[in-house]
Write a protein that binds this DNA or RNA. Structure first.
Length: 884
DNA sequence: CACTCCCGCCAATTA
DNA sequence: TAATTGGCGGGAGTG
């Protein structure tokens, strides 16, 4: 290399001199001038001429293809140049250019220049995106390698990924056939379908996974046993598949690539973090979660990601989670493929310009395929089709939707920011509202004393504008989200108007505490997590395109966000930090008061969430069909619509086409996802914490449990005792009455709503939930047991109860010191959401890898708990927990 | 120090 | 058996 470089460089530029390393120099041949220090290499433009290149050329020369060096040259340059800039989106390396670009560039050969992404761009630049069907372009590995000036090995990396997307196919040894993007839509569609089957659930709770993170191995196993072995799509022949044998193939970059893409397609958020992907992809190994293995997987994912980035399908982003910032990739490619559900047929409408061609292309493609022996790719994915079927399965189960909300947890800073915004908005509204209405109203807000912050409700709408498209997607994806939204909307709408109306659906309460809180709306979505992010995104990103989202949408999201808000917030960024900060700094904080909790909580929460989320999805599905309609009815009315629409749009897949989806949407709409939460910040002390969650939704949520959705909403709210104490609490009765009407079945929940206020009195915090409240105490607080305890404690909604153990859910309860509990374990979290409950048994549901059930793995105790615990729990945990 | 990910050894597959 | 593929992970570049 050195030599090459030098040679190249020398002539060209002096290179910058980088530090000359002698060591490196060693390479230098005498010829070279010492001038350039070593590696300068940049080679950016490798002319074909570089020594290496030459060699390669020669070599390749053997092959017929070679010839066109000149072309190459030509291509090269342009390409490179363009690439350089292009590439990285932004990132770029830019500096180089600025001034002396050339020289620098050359010099800079740095790693970036050698990056696989850049290399891939160069590679892609050589071929048309939409080649004429007639002409087949064959790719000679040797040739390309020589042209691009890289070793063959690198070309394999690129080709393997491209092959996974059917952009190319192997024709023979050293020969690949370039298909271009004609079939990309189909391929993606297939992958999406396959992904839904395999990962759908998982994705749902991506977040969850996050929690899991480490553990993930386990869940995977559980969930998806089957899939693991075989490549999803597996182009490979079925038979081979094999099982066992496929040694290499299974691990192949190709398969990993497909799976990776599937994750994006299945993900609501369209954002997949590397670690999660790695975990999921590790599959087989599941058990062993070697760290090393994980690292290796991640390396590979980077390789794949670089290629996909070059294809313009994904881009790198960062997701902030409780743990901190994590590298992640966001899907920026087409989301809807021709037929969503449909199978293959189409290609994506999205971009393709050449429909007709495509087909043709397809044909070609097929042919090519044929040629290959190895992978036959046709579309057959194993079992992919069944996707839908899969979904259904869920129906039987009663999962609670609640989890969804929890899911919200999300990570993102953005969320936080969003949350904040919301909070602010809410605050304002609240204030207004308060003025207008007094406590009396169901929703009443209490005026807050000092701060005023109190929560408010949630109307998501108002609040979050931000939500971006992306966000929505998250929630939506499954359906869950959709549910949630509707409910919310109503509420939101109210708020917006300022009406006191209260929407039936949502009640919220306000407490005066000093600080504040958040609220949120519905939530259902499993997405919570997603949502959250969104919210955050919104804030942050809004700038980005997404921002545009219509208010309505925003609202939804917001609502969603809200749901999880508190937790999420924490999570997100620096959870702990922020929280803390928030408390102090922020006027409103969403969240949790205590820090201690935070970190732990966050995790835990997430974990819990995830599971739930998963469930949710399932539910959704199930629900959708059955319940959907009803739900729809609910109150939500207006908002819903918009939301739904949005959702739909957002939804990726599911929705539209299939009827089922529709149902879902309805359901979603039905559900009330209103914003339910409130958080109260405790003032300082908070010893207790106050947290709460949504109040609203309850009804739906509650009921949902059984029904549909879930429940996301958790009606309960916790308030900090202290603060509250002073105040009278309020519950939102809203539910009851108002809600009730709504009714969906969920409403039943309403009943739950009853709470006894008495509890309020209790020293501590109060709880109110629209739905049910539970006393946390009930369950043993501390025990964290994961599941069990928690459940009991939880009582959240009836639903939960159902699902879970039988806690008493129904009653609305009030809890006393929540704080304690909270911290304790989730159990205490009693407030939990239904989901939490679920988890226990639900776990089974999950098939997805995510499922992880293994508690063991879970990180710490919490983990277990968390999982089980519903989002709520998580929240609680967070807040409270101090768990360490 | 963490994140990326280049590089190339060397085993599995193919020809 | 040689060549082609490609898994894999050390460790370097980057920030």
């Amino acid at each position: 290399e050195n030599i090459f470089d030098q040679s190249r460089m020398a002539p060209k530029t002096p290179i910058k001199n980088e530090p000359i390393d002698l060591s490196k120099q060693r390479g230098c041949t005498p010829e070279r001038n010492p001038i350039t220090p070593v590696k300068i290499i940049d080679r950016p433009q490798p002319d074909p001429w570089t020594p290496t290149a030459n060699l390669k050329m020669l070599v390749s020369a053997a092959s017929p293809d070679m010839r066109d060096r000149e072309k190459k040259k030509e291509l090269f340059r342009p390409i490179e140049n363009s690439e350089q800039r292009d590439t990285p989106d932004s990132l770029q390396y830019d500096t180089v250019d600025d001034s002396t670009v050339d020289e620098f560039e050359k010099q800079r050969p740095s790693r970036k220049q050698k990056s696989l992404g850049l290399l891939c761009q160069k590679f892609l630049a050589r071929y048309p995106n939409y080649p004429l069907s007639t002409e087949k372009t064959t790719i000679s590995l040797d040739e390309v390698a020589s042209i691009l000036g890289v070793e063959r090995r690198r070309i394999y990396d690129i080709v393997n990924v491209l092959e996974s997307l059917q952009l190319v196919s192997r024709v023979a040894k050293n020969q690949y056939c370039w298909h271009g993007r004609h079939n990309l839509g189909q391929t993606l569609k297939m992958l999406q379908e396959a992904g839904e089957l395999q990962y759908g659930e998982l994705m749902t709770f991506q977040h969850k996974e996050q929690d899991l993170e480490y553990k993930f191995g386990e869940r995977k196993k559980e969930t998806i046993p089957d899939s693991r072995d075989r490549p999803l799509l597996d182009f490979s022949e079925p038979d081979c598949i094999s099982a066992s044998a496929n040694s290499r193939k299974d691990k192949s970059l190709r398969i990993m690539s497909q799976k990776f893409v599937m994750l994006f397609l299945v993900s609501k958020t369209k954002i997949v973090t590397l670690d999660i992907a790695a975990k999921i992809l590790i599959e087989e190994t599941q058990d062993t979660v070697d760290h090393s293995k994980f690292k290796t997987k991640v390396r590979r994912l980077y390789d794949i990601a670089n290629v996909l980035t070059s294809l313009g399908l994904i881009k790198k982003v960062h997701v902030t989670e409780e743990r901190g910032r994590k590298p992640a990739f966001k899907w920026i490619g087409p989301v809807e493929f021709s037929g969503k559900t449909d199978e293959l047929r189409e290609h994506s409408p999205t971009s393709d310009p050449l429909p007709g061609t495509q087909r043709g292309a397809c044909a070609q493609f097929q042919i090519c395929v044929t040629g290959k022996q190895r992978f036959t790719r046709h579309a057959s994915f194993n079992g992919a089709q069944p996707c839908e079927g899969t979904r259904r399965k869920d129906s039987s189960e009663p999962n609670s939707p609640h989890q969804e909300r929890q899911a919200c947890i999300v990570n993102s800073d953005e969320c936080c920011s969003k949350m904040i915004n919301l909070a602010a908005v809410c605050r304002q509204k609240i204030e207004e509202d308060t003025r207008n209405s007094s406590i009396t109203s169901p929703f009443s807000l209490l005026p807050v004393p000092g701060d005023s912050d109190f929560c408010v409700n949630p109307l998501p709408q108002a609040v979050l504008p931000v939500v971006q498209a992306e966000v929505p997607s998250l929630s939506l994806p499954i359906g869950i989200s959709s549910h949630a939204p509707h409910p919310c909307t109503p509420a939101a709408s109210k708020t917006e108007n300022g009406k006191p109306t209260l929407v039936p659906s949502q009640p919220f309460l306000c407490f005066p505490s000093s600080s504040l809180f958040m609220l949120c709306g519905g939530l259902q979505e499993n997405n919570l997590s997603e949502t959250l992010p969104t919210a955050g995104d919104k804030g942050n990103r809004s700038a980005e395109a997404q921002a545009a989202v219509p208010p309505a949408v925003c609202q939804k999201r917001s609502s969603h966000k809200c749901t999880s808000p508190s937790p999420p917030v924490d999570d997100e960024e620096p959870a702990a930090k922020k929280q803390i900060m928030k408390q102090s700094d922020l006027p409103l904080s969403l969240v949790v008061p205590k820090k201690p909790f935070e970190s732990p909580k966050a995790e835990s929460t997430q974990g819990s969430v995830c599971p739930s989320a998963v469930h949710l999805e399932t539910y959704r599905l199930d629900l959708a069909s059955p319940a959907a309609p009803e739900a729809a009815n609910k109150e939500s009315t207006k908002p819903l619509d918009s939301e739904e629409q949005e959702k739909r749009s957002q939804y990726k897949d599911p929705d539209e086409p299939s009827p089922g989806n529709e149902h879902v949407s309805k359901e979603n709409s039905n559900q009330p996802f209103q914003p339910q939460y409130l958080y109260v910040q405790p003032t300082t002390g908070l010893s207790s914490f106050n947290l709460l969650f949504s109040a609203n939704q309850a009804p739906g949520a509650i009921s949902l449990a059984s029904n549909q959705l879930p429940s996301l909403s958790v009606p309960c709210v916790m308030v900090p005792s202290a603060a509250l104490a002073s105040f009278p609490l309020v519950c939102s009765p809203s539910f009851t009455s108002p809600l009730s009407p709504v009714p969906d079945g969920s409403f039943s929940a309403a009943a739950s709503m009853n709470f006894s206020m008495s509890s309020l009195a209790s020293t501590t915090p109060v709880f109110i939930s629209t739905t049910a409240v539970v006393t946390p105490k009930v369950s043993p607080p501390p025990s964290m047991d994961p599941q069990q305890p928690a459940q009991p404690s939880l009582h959240l909604s009836p639903v939960l109860a159902r699902s879970c153990s039988g806690v008493k859910v129904d009653s609305p309860v009030c809890m006393g010191h929540p704080v304690t509990f909270l911290k304790l374990q989730q159990p205490s979290s009693a407030p939990l959401t239904p989901k939490s409950i679920r988890p226990a048994h639900h776990e089974a549901f999950f098939k997805t890898p995510g499922s992880l059930g293994d508690p063991v793995a879970w990180k710490k105790n919490e983990g277990n708990q968390t999982r089980n615990a519903s989002s709520v729990q998580r929240r609680l945990e967070i807040s409270g927990t101090s768990p360490d």
